[in-house]
Nucleic acid binder design. Structure first.
Lengths: 248, 248
DNA sequence: TTAATAGTGTCTGTAAGACAATATTAT
DNA sequence: ATAATATTGTCTTACAGACACTATTAA
């Protein structure tokens, strides 16, 4: 064959375009939402797609993803830095873009409830869509979105990532609603509370007696995300659907 | 900036080389081994590296990885098809290759104990190395190998992947040794047995009374990998938990 | 016999599931 | 008062960890 086994012959490679695609998730009004942009050009003109763009000559895919995240949400690079961004996998089917050979590194981002992306240039045609209500997306983005959704659900089981959907200070009820929304199940509140509080470093009680109401009920104590990143033992989602919906 | 938000301008992209790198693991003689190739050219001449190569114009990264796996192990594409191959993540640091911009999609492969890669061209400088005994590798391959090792260990907890290290028919003792080798711990045999057999679809008893000896001891019953792919509930590796005797 | 590996059974502690009961707010 | 949410506590079950004990082979 033409490939050298132990090295790369700089003269024997095929040039590819490399892009990043982002599945930006948020929980809003008890529903999982994803950020999509409307395509203004062929192919797939008028279809919705995951935000993304080319990796620039001197940046890594991670840096490109972070830059795109700031552009599409309309926020500054600085404020976007706190958001959880995680590489999903790379999509490289030769025909995934009809125009040229494009390899795309997909990322999932978990953000708290943000205002509708408004303002200037790039984010002009961006909006939040409820997952499940998205029509067929451009390119292979349905597949990417499905993979991303599955990954987020699985990550909630073994990590403390659910707090990434919450504002800096949150109640245990809000945290529980993250799980219920992403997994599409109902959880027992006392048991959820016990589990979260028994996991060292998952959440951290906010000092003083500040409390906040979620409507009309007893005000809830506030917590911050703790230092822990993994969940031992995991918080497994109830049996029945190991994968949740396969098509979001 | 210069990237279009909803599409890819075919004239505005930077060309990259795209490669695959493989972390091929096997369990041999109670030790975890990884397949490495010795570099014959600069840069990193004489250093060992993960096997890999360019993605060809009309193949996906997955196909390239499968092709490279066959080339490096010296086996046919056909026999390599049964091996577990899993995309890890993509490495895209702008300076990871001093010669040019190379984005590499890393894969982990789990294979049963294979003969030393011998024969012809590409695999001439390939051999199995015990993990931990590898010197500094070429490029960012130490990082990739570390990530791959971590991923494999984690996957054993939540999936039935351990059987991928075993021959088609195996004993529970062999399966247990896979866990002990990868995790670097000792497991209690009765408890391991109970867990594996209680998980539907993990292993499947081989019919008839065929048995095989692992040395001198009671011959063990043989099993095949079952149809299950996930492990519910997971088989968590022992924590670094404090000593605790239950009976004095 | 002893050594080594395979397999069975049992006790116990941990954590999750179910759910009753109480507390504090808005309407 | 009633509805709604927060919080505490209790009972039960599933399952993992520890470990004693038996079974079957080679040397």
């Amino acid at each position: 064959m033409s490939t050298a086994p132990e090295g790369y012959d700089p003269h024997a490679y095929t040039p590819f375009a490399v892009t990043v695609d982002l599945a930006v998730f948020t929980v809003r009004a008890g529903r999982l939402h994803v950020l999509l942009v409307e395509r203004g050009e062929a192919p797939y003109k008028g279809r919705w797609a995951l935000p993304g763009g080319f990796v620039l000559p001197r940046e890594s895919a991670e840096e490109a993803a972070r830059r795109e995240l700031a552009e599409e949400t309309g926020l500054t690079q600085r404020s976007v830095r706190a958001f959880h961004l995680e590489q999903l996998r790379t999509y490289s089917d030769p025909d995934r873009d009809p125009r040229m050979r494009v390899v795309s590194v997909a990322y999932a981002a978990l953000v708290p409830d943000l205002p509708e992306p408004k303002g200037g240039g790039d984010a002009a045609h961006a909006r939040w869509w409820e997952t499940g209500g998205t029509g067929p997306l451009a390119f292979d983005h349905d597949r990417i979105l499905t993979d991303a959704y599955g990954r987020v659900g699985a990550r909630l089981e073994y990590t403390c990532l659910a707090t990434a959907f919450c504002p800096p200070e949150f109640t245990l009820g809000e945290l529980q609603r993250v799980y219920e929304t992403v997994w599409g199940v109902e959880l027992d509140r006392p048991n959820f509370r016990r589990k979260v509080l028994a996991t060292p470093g998952f959440v951290q009680a906010v000092e003083g007696p500040p409390r906040r109401t979620g409507g009309r009920g007893k005000p809830a104590a506030l917590y911050r995300a703790g230092a822990a990143t993994a969940l031992h033992p995991p918080l497994l989602r109830p049996e029945g659907r190991p994968e949740g919906r396969t098509t979001p």
